[in-house]
Simulated scan of single mutants.
Amino acid sequence: MTRKKIFVILAPFLLMAGCRNQNSEEKYDKPIPVITCSPVTLSIAQDIRASGNAEGFRIVKIGFMVAGRINYISAGEGDRVSTTKPVASLDPASYEIAKELAGIQLDQTQDEYDRLKIMHDNKSLSESDFSKISFGLQQAKAQFRLHSRNLDETKLFSPINGVVVKKLAEVGEITGVGIPVMVVSDINKIKINVFVPETEIFDVRIGQTAEVFISSLDKTVEGRVIETGAYADPASRAFSVRIEIENPGLIIRPGMIAEVKIHTGKKKEITTLPVEALLRDLNGVSYVFAVDTIKMKAFRKDIITGEISNDQAEVISGIEMNDIIVKGGSQKLVDGSSVSFYK
């Protein structure tokens, strides 16, 4: 009697629990409406993309042709310099004295030459003696020109108009012959130096156009290929390629990072999907959901993507052309979810 009472009491609760489980299963198995699409093959320009750095079109290291103590430097790093104004100078005192002594020696030799020439013209001086004074005069003149030049060399001029990219000396330092004092770069034009893989280098030709994006300036400029490397870097197996661009306003500076797209003039076919079809998991792996139209279930497919253009993403691998890909409603899906086509 007691067991019958217990069963009677528990029966409604067991019935309710069974209904809840049934409702949960029905809810779980309820198809999720999705919007689908198919992969599309597009023919696009076969451009070569690479990253690189900006550098001056011409870079020179400048230093004095004579030794001495630096007493003046007109420009620091980032300052503009020209060919008409000195950028640095040495203490000229010693060279001024040397020139003065050479001038005195020249005047003395010239006077002696003039006197002996009169005697030579009057046949009172032998050819041998006159030759000695003639050579002495030439030597005195050469010495004067040398010391005059040395004095001029105490002022340092830049051979190009440009910007100081590196200052290598300070006022008061003793410098030697040919030791660089600063590095000057001509940035009226800029060269972008990039490296192209050996598999693509044969598609690069001198004169090809290129798009150069300077990220720090958020600016894209047109350029052209002016150099292609003759040998590959031993480590990367990539070839150096240089692109020339104009630099109005001198806003592009050496060292800026540039993204380059070289136009090869060729076409290639790629498989694409709408960007809204692409998903990414916590590990950074890209994937999509493909619908099995027989089972009406969505299954995850990991993919490798390429370039994105006009809301279309290149899919390098992971899908087939006959796949039905979910592009709407995929946020609610898990691997194996039941789906229905949205109407």
Score class of each variant (00 low, 15 high):
M1Q: 15
T2F: 15
R3S: 08
K5P: 00
V8K: 01
V8A: 15
I9T: 09
L10Y: 08
P12Y: 06
F13G: 15
F13A: 14
G18L: 05
C19W: 13
Q22K: 15
N23P: 11
Y28F: 13
V34D: 08
C37L: 01
P39Q: 08
P39M: 03
T41P: 10
R49S: 14
F57I: 09
R58V: 10
R58K: 15
V60Y: 07
F64E: 07
A67P: 08
I70M: 00
G76M: 08
R80T: 13
T83S: 12
T83F: 11
K85M: 04
K85H: 08
V87N: 11
S89F: 08
A93Y: 13
A93R: 14
A93K: 15
Y95K: 06
K99I: 06
G103W: 10
G103Y: 06
G103M: 03
Q105K: 12
L106I: 04
Q108E: 06
Q110E: 04
Y113L: 00
D114H: 02
I118C: 05
I118D: 14
H120I: 10
S126H: 05
S126F: 07
E127Y: 11
K132A: 03
I133W: 08
F135M: 14
F135G: 14
G136L: 06
L137P: 02
L137A: 02
Q139T: 14
K141S: 02
A142M: 00
Q143F: 12
R145C: 09
R145L: 14
L146D: 15
S148D: 01
R149S: 03
R149M: 11
D152L: 13
D152K: 15
K155E: 11
K155V: 02
P159S: 04
I160P: 03
I160T: 05
G162D: 04
K166I: 11
L168D: 12
L168F: 13
L168P: 12
E170N: 14
V171S: 10
V171K: 15
V177I: 07
P180N: 06
V183I: 13
D186G: 04
I190M: 03
I190E: 09
N193S: 15
N193M: 01
E198L: 12
V204A: 11
V204W: 01
G207V: 09
Q208Y: 02
F213W: 06
F213N: 07
S216Q: 10
D218Q: 00
T220D: 05
V221I: 04
R224N: 14
I226V: 09
A232N: 04
D233I: 03
F239N: 07
S240M: 14
I243Q: 00
E244L: 13
I245N: 03
G249I: 08
M256L: 06
V260I: 09
G265H: 08
K266M: 09
K268F: 03
I270A: 05
I270W: 05
T271L: 03
T272D: 06
L273N: 04
E276G: 14
L279C: 07
L279E: 07
D281W: 05
N283V: 04
V285I: 06
V291A: 05
M296P: 00
K297E: 08
F299M: 06
T305Y: 01
I308A: 11
D311I: 01
V315A: 08
I316E: 01
I316Q: 13
S317D: 07
S317P: 08
S317W: 02
I319L: 00
E320Y: 10
E320G: 00
D323I: 12
I324N: 10
I324S: 09
V326I: 05
S330T: 06
G336Q: 02
G336P: 05
F341R: 04
